[in-house]
Structures are given as C-alpha cells and as structure tokens.
Design a protein around this nucleic acid. Structure first.
Lengths: 228, 228
DNA sequence: CGGAAGCTTCGGCGCCGGCCGAAGCATCCT
DNA sequence: AGGATGCTTCGGCCGGCGCCGAAGCTTCCG
C-alpha cells in the first residue's frame, strides 16, 4: 500500500493550522497576495512565505507574480473539492463545541465554493435547473439542454469561452452543509459570475459567505422560484 | 474563517504517515484488527494503538470489540470519499518519482473503493448501466429504473435490505485514476458483493487491487460488453 | 537615485508529537 | 488456575517543524 505516503504528504500540508487557514481563505477561488494570506492565517509574513512555498511545491497552490506582489490561488478545482470533502468530514465529526454563530447561518444560506455557488442558494439553483430540464447532471459531468442554453443565454450567462478547455461543462459538487450537490463546472462558474454582475449577490468581508441583495431576492424568486 | 482549525485537525490526522497507511489499508471497507493495522503501517502495536485512539476520537474510524480482538473500520462513506479526493490531488501533484509499477497497473484496472468497485472496471460498469438506462445518476444521488431493477434482480444482486437506511441508493463517486465517476451507494455495494459471490473478481493480498477471473472476463463481456 | 513596500531566505530557539520499552488489563485456551 | 495472546497505558527519549528576528532581494515611487 505505497499510496499511503503520498496521502500523508498532501494531508500533512493541509494539516497545519496556518496552512489550513490559508487554503480556506483561498477556497473562494480568488487570488490573494502573500501579505493578505499572512494576515488571514494570523502569522508573520516570513512564516506565511515558508508555508506558501511548501504549498506551491506540493502543487496545492499556484503563484503569479504581478509587480511587487505575488498572488496565490488554489492550483485547481480538484484541490478545492478535496478541501470541501475534508470539511464535510470535519463538519459532523467533532461533537466538541458547535458555535453555530451568525456567520455560520450566513454560510449555510449562500457562499462561494471555489468559483461557483454553494449553500442553500447553490443547491436551490441546481435543483431548479435540473427540475426544469435545463441541465442534466449525469455521472460523466452533465450537459446543458437546448432549452437550458437558451435560458442561460437570455439571462446573460457567458458560456462561449475556449472550447478546448478540459474542464467539464457541468459537474455536481458535493455541498457540505446541505449534504446534496450543487452546480459546478464551467456553467456553475459562469452562472455565479453573472449573478455577481447583476448585483444579485455580494461578497462579504473576510468570509466566503455571500449577501443576497434585494435585487437578488427578486431575481432568484422570479427566475428560479427560489425563496431563501 | 473559523473552519480553518477544524480543517487542519482532520487533515492532520491523515497527515501522519503511519495513520495514512492505516487509513489506506481500511479504504476497501473491510474491518481489520489493531494488530493487522500495526503491521500494515510498519509500526509497533503500542504506536498503532495510539494512532487508532486518535483516529477514533476524530471520528474517522469506528471500533467494534469482538472477543480479544478489536476491529477497526472507516467511520463512513464520507471518510472514504475524503481519502479518495486527497489521493486524487496527490496523484497528479508531485512530479517526483512515478513508479508506475505493476501493482499500479492492477490498481488502475480494478480495485475496491470502500465497499464498491473502482478503476476501469468500476467506471465501465457505471457507463454500461447508465448507457442502457438501467440507472440514472442525477445530482441527488440517482435512481434505478424498472428495467434496471429487473436486470439487477436477474443477475442476483440483492437490493432488499432495510429501506429506512439513510444511505443513497445510487451515488456517483469520483474515480481518481479514471477521473470519471463510478457507481457507489447501496447499488454499487450490492453489485460489488454479487461479483465477489459469482467469483468474477478476487481480492489480492495486501492491496485493494482486484484480480478479474476468467469467469469474470466472460461475465463482464457478456452482460456489460466490457473488455478490460 | 535614495527610500519604502512587499516578499523571501537564513539562523536559531522551543515545543509538539511520534516512537518504543516496560508494565497493566482483558480474553481465550487447556 | 496458569499461561499465552491481543491490546492499551505510561514514561522518557528525540527528531522534526513551526515560529520569529534579522538581513537580502526586487519593485515601485518621487
């Protein structure tokens, strides 16, 4: 069982509190500077730099130099999915203390998951789209029906992009609060981006939780029969 | 971002080499004794005992006393899925050394994943069943069609069991070698069990890889048009 | 061109945690 | 009962890693 060592190496990278905070901060798919990540992890810049070097060597994050800043981001959707699956185990494992604070309620309602939407909002959208036959989530990623393509086009969701990308169009991504999948893949990302553009949702400070605006409440209710 | 600490706690449990070997050994869903796990992890019984206590406290494994033995097993399918997703990241992350040994080839062909089948065999079965409309894998787990139920019944797959179980009937489980989902859930487990009973597949020593017997080759080819 | 900002590298300290020997329980066998 | 087996607990050793201060490198600005 030789895969045990690689398993341990990757898990150990996530297993340090500072690095876990860094990864959690990157989980919404944005690219953050080393300084911001140091602040997020509550460690000094030197310490964060060391952690980031290890994460980069382990191919968990990628770095992009831009002027005197260095922007770090998750290395891909597989990493995000791994982190979500670990959180899913962490969520029900420890009976220790269950804060259930206000921010948790917000997280459960709507949050970003890598570059798409999760929480009740995310699974609600996925449910609505599948119930109406706009998307079909199969085992091999899933597809968008003709009616779905028309619906999304009318909504203004940009699905053009380079066709040669390897990323699947649709993917069911497990949601660790709702325990049911939400919509990921290129469609999930484009839909989330469009919701931001429409001003239906807004990011919160220092959290992956999202604020649903009044326009968003109206839009989600009218177009998706979704009341959150 | 308070979830960072819980993330780190769970990941740190997997992050130790000895514990990772233990978890990898349990990944096929069987329950093993503390002694067997100590041997699998190449540590002394005392050391393994400490690790197992931590894994149990972290709710990653469950223990069942039976005589003077203690049988440990993974705490659930969510844990198995987490481990698979970590392996998926570990598989393409390190360009270090790629052994690509013989056992790896066997693992890619057919192996167990928790209590169901993975590898080319696993995804091939899932493909065949969906292509023929025997199962429909949706986002919310999936269903077995009437034709599928009849087909499985004729094959001798026992799907009765207690109806009140929470476990979904079907579920798409990501496959880290094929990078496409295979069939999990109660149906996946029952199908795997039936293949063992039919003598189509056999476990190998010290590995999750499976040997496909001559009867298995014939059966998979005839009933699923699957040539491995 | 100097100074400041952002980030990294280096060096040494300190501590957490894995490891095993020895001992302590529980269970099974005869 | 006596001994063997399986597993756990205790105690102490020791290596590794996270941490930060100081210094060095690159980039931006006036």
């Amino acid at each position: 069982m030789r895969d045990g060592v690689q398993l341990a190496e990757v898990a150990a990278l996530v297993g340090d509190p500072a690095r876990a905070h860094i990864l959690a901060a990157l989980l919404d798919g944005r690219a953050l500077t080393a300084g911001e990540l140091a602040y997020a992890a509550s460690v000094s810049p030197q310490t964060a730099s060391g952690h980031l070097a290890k994460l980069a060597e382990g191919r968990l994050v990628e770095v992009a130099r831009q002027g005197r800043h260095r922007y770090y981001r998750l290395a891909g959707a597989a990493v995000a999915q791994m982190l979500e699956s670990i959180m899913a185990v962490a969520a029900d494992s420890p009976p220790r203390y269950r804060p259930a604070s206000k921010v948790d309620a917000a997280m459960r309602t709507a949050r970003t998951c890598y570059d798409h939407l999760a929480g009740r909002l995310g699974v609600g959208l996925a449910d609505a789209l599948t119930a109406r036959g706009h998307v079909v989530l199969g085992e091999d990623g899933g597809e968008v029906t003709e009616a779905g393509a028309a619906f999304l086009a009318e909504l203004g969701v940009a699905l053009a992009g380079p066709k040669r990308t390897r990323r699947p169009l649709c993917r069911a991504c497990p949601d660790w609060t709702e325990r049911r999948p939400h919509l990921a893949g290129r469609v999930g990302a484009a839909l989330a981006a469009r919701c931001f553009d429409l001003g239906w949702i807004e990011r919160r400070r220092d959290s992956r939780a999202l604020t649903i605006t009044r326009a968003g409440e109206q839009g989600f209710a009218e177009l998706f029969d979704l009341h959150l």
